[in-house]
Design a protein around this nucleic acid. Structure first.
Length: 225
DNA sequence: GCAAAGATTTGCT
DNA sequence: GCAAATCTTTGCC
C-alpha cells in the first residue's frame, strides 16, 4: 500500500515517527531495492539553525517549501547524496533526512550500486586504482546486509538516488522512488540529538530530533549519550 | 568574482 | 583516532 501523504503533512516530529518503519522502494521488479526506514532526522522551519532552510528559500532547498511527501535530495561534502522526505504542510520548510534503512529485498542490486560508486572513486586514484578496486570489491561483498544502507550517504548509494530524484513524489505509486506503508506492528522509536550539526548554535544543536529504532543493526553512527 | 565550509565515508597511522 | 576526497552553495569583497 502506498504511503498516505496525510501522515507526512503534519508536524515534523509526528511525521518522523510515522516515517519510521515505512518501506523505501527503488524501481520495480523482483530485484528492486527495498528496505525499512529505521532512522531519520527532522529539520524544522527557517528558525532551525541546522537546517538548509536557515538561509530562507534558495534554489537548492526550494522543495522543502512545497507539499509533503516529496523528495529533497542534495549533495554534501562534494560527494555524497542525501535523501529527505518533505514534511509539514506546504509553506513550512521542513524535511526528514533518511539516515538509515534496513534492507528487505533487492540486496544484490544494492551491492552492485555500492560497488559501482566505489569503483568510480577507485578509477580517479590513478596508479593505485587496480588495488583500490580489489579492496572495494572485497569490502562491499563482506558488508553485512544490515550495514549496506547504514548512513545517509549509503542510503543514496545503495538505492542509486541522486539529485535527479529531487522533487519526486514519494507518495505516487508510479514513481521510480517511493514509500510504502508496512502493515505490521509499529516499531519502537527513541530520540537523540542530531548528528553532524555541531556548527549550529544552541538550542538547535541539542534538539532531540534524531528518531530511530533502538537496537536496530542498521543504524548509522552510534547514539550520542 | 573568490574563499570557506559542509545534515559523510573511507582509509591509513 | 584523524585527515583526505570533492564540489556545490553561501557569504563577503
Amino acid at each position: 500500500m502506498t504511503f498516505p501523504r496525510e501522515r507526512l503533512g503534519v508536524d515534523a516530529e509526528t511525521a518522523a515517527r510515522n516515517l519510521i518503519g515505512a518501506l523505501l522502494v527503488r524501481g520495480t521488479g523482483p530485484g528492486a531495492p527495498a528496505g525499512r526506514i529505521v532512522e531519520v532526522e527532522a529539520y524544522i522551519g527557517q528558525q532551525d539553525r541546522a537546517s538548509h532552510a536557515r538561509f530562507g528559500r534558495t534554489r537548492r532547498n526550494a522543495v522543502m517549501y512545497g507539499p509533503p511527501g516529496v523528495a529533497y535530495v542534495y549533495l554534501v561534502y562534494g560527494m555524497h547524496n542525501c535523501l529527505n522526505v518533505v514534511t509539514e504542510p506546504a509553506g513550512c520548510p521542513a524535511a526528514l533526512l533518511v539516515r538509515a534503512v534496513e534492507p528487505v529485498s533487492g540486496v544484490a542490486q544494492m551491492r552492485e550500486a555500492l560497488l559501482r560508486g566505489a569503483l568510480t572513486r577507485a578509477e580517479r586514484a590513478g596508479e593505485a586504482a587496480a588495488e583500490r578496486a580489489r579492496r572495494a570489491e572485497r569490502r562491499v561483498a563482506a558488508t553485512p546486509v544490515s550495514r549496506l544502507a547504514a548512513g545517509p550517504g549509503l542510503v543514496c548509494a545503495a538505492f542509486s538516488i541522486d539529485r535527479g530524484h529531487d522533487g519526486v513524489d514519494l507518495c505516487d505509486p508510479a514513481s521510480e522512488l517511493r514509500l510504502e506503508l508496512v502493515d505490521a506492528e509499529p516499531l519502537p522509536v527513541a530520540t537523540a540529538p542530531r548528528v553532524g550539526v555541531d556548527y549550529a548554535p544552541e538550542p538547535w544543536r541539542s534538539r532531540p530530533w534524531r528518531f530511530f529504532v533502538p537496537g536496530s543493526p542498521a543504524l548509522s553512527v552510534p547514539v550520542r549519550p
